[in-house]
Design a protein around this nucleic acid. Sequence first.
DNA 1: GTCTATATAGAGATAGAC
DNA 2: GTCTATCTCTATATAGAC
Lengths: 216, 216
Amino acid sequence: MKAKNVREKLLDSAQMLISKNGYSAVSMRAIAQAAGANVGSLTYHFGSKANLLREIYLLHTGPMNARRMELLGEALRIDDLDARLVAILRAYVLPAFSMSENGVGGGAEFTRMRAVLTAEGNKDASTIIADTFDETSRSFLRAISGCIPGASLEGLIWCSQFLLGSLYYALINPERVTRLSDGKVDGANRDVAVEQLVQSSFASFKNLTSKEDVSP
Amino acid sequence: MKAKNVREKLLDSAQMLISKNGYSAVSMRAIAQAAGANVGSLTYHFGSKANLLREIYLLHTGPMNARRMELLGEALRIDDLDARLVAILRAYVLPAFSMSENGVGGGAEFTRMRAVLTAEGNKDASTIIADTFDETSRSFLRAISGCIPGASLEGLIWCSQFLLGSLYYALINPERVTRLSDGKVDGANRDVAVEQLVQSSFASFKNLTSKEDVSP
DNA sequence: GTCTATATAGAGATAGAC
DNA sequence: GTCTATCTCTATATAGAC
């Protein structure tokens, strides 16, 4: 835990506030205040609010996709198709929920921020988000497809869409889990969330297996 | 398609704009302009932006939950557990995707707006959203539970969380489906989305069936 | 019931002192 | 590199004409 300079503190505060309240609702003043800095320093370091957002993305996208691809590579070495599929799904989900040691490469807060930005459909954000993650998604789609003989493209695409939606919502609204279970299930427990998500989407994907193709 | 008065037009425009861009990003001016009305008329009819949002909710929540509960009642009359579960899931999903004839009672745009508001975590919104839908969710949870012998509460809660997340994301980001499939799958086709979502979550829920309890 | 005009506050961004 | 001060624009909300 080394001391952070103002620039890093500003990036942290921005990510934290935007992931919680959305991009439009968070003012540069609020970001500066949360970082214990001044408004002027924001424009000095980043020039504009849109560019501040871009810098946050640049900090995470590369490392996060690298982690995903590395875990995917390991998963693809598994022979058993079911075990491989589970490993692939975990490779996709894990980096979205937890960061690497150096504090970049994904994590729940960054993912939650992405979820909020996607929902807002913000112009500043969409140009940045655009296809940053699509290449990785395609690699995972191919890998998943290889585990499910006879699955239709339509089914695969929709299931992967539902996987991402489930992932986002688990981070956006964990309170609902706790509330709906009368406190018996903790929505904020991310290890549990990851496992439940992996199991749930595994079942969905497996369900796509061509029904005619059940020869042993 | 009867002629709409200014008040109704303002409600429509507000819902449309907020569902697309988020609550904070949409100004009262933009809402008034989209409705072909004046800013002053907004405060006259609704008093404040927060209350405008409340009125949109009041217009939909009652009828939408009524439709869901009616469809749920029909589903519960089905004897076969698998067929019943599918019907229950469809009863939950359908009203979120399409309105009743009178133009209220849910629909994709209203649901999308709810998704965006949840993501933004907006204060004005959260007090309104709060527990408006929780009672319905609880009824569905009980009904689903009755179809899956031996399912754990934890599994049921998480699967229902993933269902809602999938539903929201299907409406928030349909472009991703189209883009990821190179145009081969149309993310905007809501009939298909509903069926894919029902099938996918059916498989997830069924997967919760206690493995020990497979006596015929 | 709907408009124009306006009050007040806050936004993003800039210039220049230190 | 970080601050203060300020410019300009836009926000919500209000008051009063029609």
